[in-house]
């Protein structure tokens, strides 16, 4: 069931505060967080979050198309080895 529109998106206050501080001082720094349930607002664009996946912190660089998603969606908790290793025609950005 979807979250009530009346409440608005859930945004972690501490995390939003840290991003506001960085935006105010025009700095870039990796923000470590466990707030996987935090919705990504437009203010987060261009910042890098180290999102905990239960084991380690996965760096997530927030881009425009991630707005409205949760941080946890980009830090998978299960490892899927999607490339075979060795010499293969598998590419990365």
């Amino acid at each position: 069931m979807a979250r009530s529109l009346k409440k608005g998106p859930y945004i972690d206050e501490k995390l939003a505060g840290k991003v506001d501080e960085l935006n105010r001082t025009n700095q870039k720094r990796v923000i470590k967080t466990w707030a996987r349930r935090c919705t990504i607002p437009p203010d987060f664009i261009g910042h890098t979050f180290a999102v905990h996946n239960g084991n380690k912190f996965i760096p997530v660089y927030v881009q425009e198309n991630m707005i409205g998603h949760k941080l946890g969606e980009f830090s998978p908790t299960r490892i899927f080895r999607s490339h075979p290793g060795g010499k293969a025609e598998k590419s990365s950005r």
């Binding site: 490339h83 060795g86 010499k87 293969a88 025609e89 590419s91 990365s92 950005r93």
Partner: peptide, 15 residues
């Protein structure tokens, strides 16, 4: 016979 990687991408074994 290897193809070139798509534009803006790099093969993992090269990285």
């Amino acid at each position: 016979e290897m193809a070139d990687p798509p534009e803006g991408r790099h093969f993992i074994h090269d990285l």
